[in-house]
Every structure is written in structure tokens, then in C-alpha cells.
Simulated scan of single mutants.
Amino acid sequence: MFPLMIRNFQIGKSETVLEEPKPALRNKSIEKHQRLPYIYDYTINEPDKCKDGAPFLILLITAERWQKEARQAIRQTWGKEDLLPGVKTLRLFLLGKDNKWTDDANKSLVEESQAFHDIIQQDYLDTYRNLTTKVLNGLSWVATHCPGASYVMKTDSDMFIGTEYLINSLLKPDQPPRLNYFTGSLFINGRPIRNTDSKWYMSPEEYPENDYPLFCSGTGYVFSAGLAGKIVEVSPSVRWVYLEDVYVGLCLKKIGVQPVAPPKGTDFNIWRVQYTDCGYSRIVTSHGLSPGDIISQWNQMQRNKHTCVSTDEQKPSSK
């Protein structure tokens, strides 16, 4: 499952650089993480994203190569890096590789990367059962290339994220960043699904225990950026499971950090939320949106959010 790392392709700010790995030239953080068997070399990287200063929030978005429309929708809406004046955010799409891609598909991805500088691609196969690999590699990138960030949010490409609400109401950039903080849609009594027809089936061989640890849904969770390196460091001693959110919960338990429910009123929704102008201006996540839905609902919310009075609007409902 974890092949040897063979090469290191990096996309710079102005050109594509292809070179063989040179371990002696890597800094200590990269060297340390690349000794782990499931931290892969980059085929596309943005190592200088934080050179102009550490961001307040990093958005780590899992995606696949073919989801170009979704990436573009996110760039135009909740993933804008200049969304809030004075609050530095950073957007990164996490991708693996597929040996069936054509040369034209790979060329298109390289061109997209050179245009937007927000794609991180590594040498693992991009499959659902490699989602834990994808997220761990993203956390390794944070720890290696942007350790001074305040917070990270991991989410998916079919999500609507209330970035402004998240930053102003939950993370609060005018206050000192919290340490060892982890929150999202909290699963308190999660249990492995033994039904083989389920997408989330977990065999007794993979996970023999009857209960999962505390964990937050992988649709969107937020955490202190300093936890990224701690999770990567402890990961070799944690039983590997393909459900990324459960695996991160296992790592947090190992390092003694307990995920917490978000404050009342900051909604992390694991299902799609029925759109209302004021409702969407006061949620963190809504799940299962198409690129067109993301753009249209974002634009409508921007037009009408300033007319909302929080005490008068009811919470949105899920469907």
C-alpha cells in the first residue's frame, strides 16, 4: 500500500522543476517526516506559500484531478485567500495520482497549478481508501512548510464553508490562537459499521474494537495548526484505518488531545443545509453541493447577508 518514494517534482512560482530527491539538502522537518512510510514525495508542491508570513487559517481541501470545476468554484467563493482584509488565509487542494491519467490530463493539472499555485499533489494513488494517506500528507505539508499558522481546516471539495463566519465567530483573529484545539461535528459514541454493503464498512480485522474514539466528521473540522505535526509524529504508533476522520481521532487520543463540540451557534453540518440567506451566513459547513450550487448560493448570500438580524432568523434545517 505504501510504495517507495521515487522522484520529487516541484512546481515553482514560474516554472516546473523536475529533479531527483537530494536528502542531504532537505531541512530537518522534511527529513523527519519522509522517514515515515506513508509520507510521499511531491509531484506538485508549493513550498513557498508561507514565505510572506504565516496565515491565520489554512484551508486543506481534499479533491481529485477531475474536479476542476469544483476547485474553480471554491476559488471564487469561500476559498478566496483575500476574503477578509487583514486576515491572511491560505487555500490548498490535496491530490494524489492515478496511473491511468493521460499526458493531456497531467499537463492540464500542471497548467492549473501554475495559474493558481494552490495544488499539492503527491505520489500516492488517489482512491477513497487512501483518504487517510491524503490527509496525513496534507498535515505533513503544514508542519513542514507552514508551522507558524494559527489554525487549519480540513474539508472536501463538495462543501460550502462559511469562512467569514468561521473566522469571526469561532476562531476570532483578535484573540490569541488556542493551543491543542480541535472541533467540528463531534461523534461521541461512534461505532464501526459491520454491514458490508455500507460505504463506511469496517471489518473486525481492520478494527476489532467495538467503539471509535471521539472524532469529528471529515466533512469539515478545525484545529490548532500546531497539532498537524503532532498527529504526523504519533501516526506510526497508531493502528491504520482508511476512515480518515476516525484515524485522526485515534491519533488525537494517543497524544492526549480531546476534540470538543463547537460553541453553540457555530454549526458544522454533515448533510446539505437548505439554503436561506441568513441561515447560510451563520453556518460553518453544508455538505453535498455541486460547483454551480456553491457559486450561486455564495453570490446570493453575499448580496443579502447584511440584511440579516441574528436574533430574528431561525436556524437552517438539513435535508
Score class of each variant (00 low, 15 high):
residue 85 P to Y: 03
residue 262 P to V: 02
residue 270 I to F: 09
residue 311 T to N: 10
residue 123 D to T: 14
residue 80 K to V: 04
residue 95 L to M: 09
residue 81 E to A: 07
residue 100 K to I: 07
residue 116 F to E: 06
residue 30 I to E: 15
residue 215 F to Y: 15
residue 171 L to P: 02
residue 292 G to I: 02
residue 90 L to F: 08
residue 216 C to K: 04
residue 215 F to L: 03
residue 151 Y to E: 06
residue 5 M to S: 09
residue 121 Q to T: 12
residue 38 Y to M: 13
residue 52 D to E: 14
residue 133 T to W: 10
residue 206 E to M: 12
residue 114 Q to D: 11
residue 101 W to T: 03
residue 103 D to Q: 08
residue 100 K to E: 10
residue 219 T to H: 08
residue 191 R to S: 13
residue 290 S to Q: 14
residue 254 K to L: 10
residue 65 R to L: 15
residue 54 A to L: 06
residue 279 G to W: 05
residue 140 S to R: 00
residue 311 T to M: 00
residue 32 K to D: 13
residue 61 I to T: 14
residue 166 L to S: 08
residue 234 V to T: 15
residue 4 L to S: 13
residue 160 F to L: 15
residue 263 P to N: 05
residue 236 P to I: 04
residue 155 T to E: 00
residue 172 K to D: 13
residue 117 H to A: 13
residue 104 D to S: 07
residue 22 K to H: 07
residue 311 T to E: 04
residue 21 P to Y: 07
residue 194 R to A: 12
residue 141 W to N: 01
residue 45 N to S: 15
residue 151 Y to Q: 05
residue 103 D to V: 11
residue 18 L to M: 15
residue 79 G to W: 11
residue 46 E to W: 07
residue 170 L to M: 15
residue 235 S to H: 03
residue 104 D to E: 15
residue 45 N to V: 04
residue 262 P to Y: 06
residue 308 C to H: 07
residue 127 T to K: 15
residue 298 W to A: 02
residue 287 H to Q: 11
residue 148 G to M: 12
residue 291 P to H: 07
residue 227 L to H: 14
residue 269 N to Q: 13
residue 162 G to A: 02
residue 263 P to D: 04
residue 80 K to R: 14
residue 202 M to V: 15
residue 218 G to C: 02
residue 183 T to K: 01
residue 207 Y to C: 02
residue 243 L to T: 04
residue 112 E to G: 05
residue 1 M to Y: 02
residue 287 H to V: 12
residue 40 Y to T: 04
residue 109 L to F: 05
residue 207 Y to I: 03
residue 270 I to T: 12
residue 226 G to P: 12
residue 204 P to M: 11
residue 214 L to N: 07
residue 114 Q to H: 14
residue 265 G to P: 04
residue 281 S to G: 06
residue 29 S to F: 04
residue 281 S to W: 00
residue 178 R to D: 08
residue 308 C to S: 08
residue 191 R to Q: 08
residue 23 P to D: 11
residue 231 I to G: 04
residue 93 F to E: 07
residue 17 V to S: 10
residue 142 V to S: 03
residue 48 D to C: 00
residue 166 L to C: 07
residue 201 Y to K: 13
residue 179 L to E: 14
residue 216 C to N: 09
residue 229 G to I: 02
residue 77 T to V: 07
residue 72 Q to L: 11
residue 168 N to V: 03
residue 222 V to G: 00
residue 160 F to I: 06
residue 45 N to C: 14
residue 135 V to L: 15
residue 111 E to S: 09
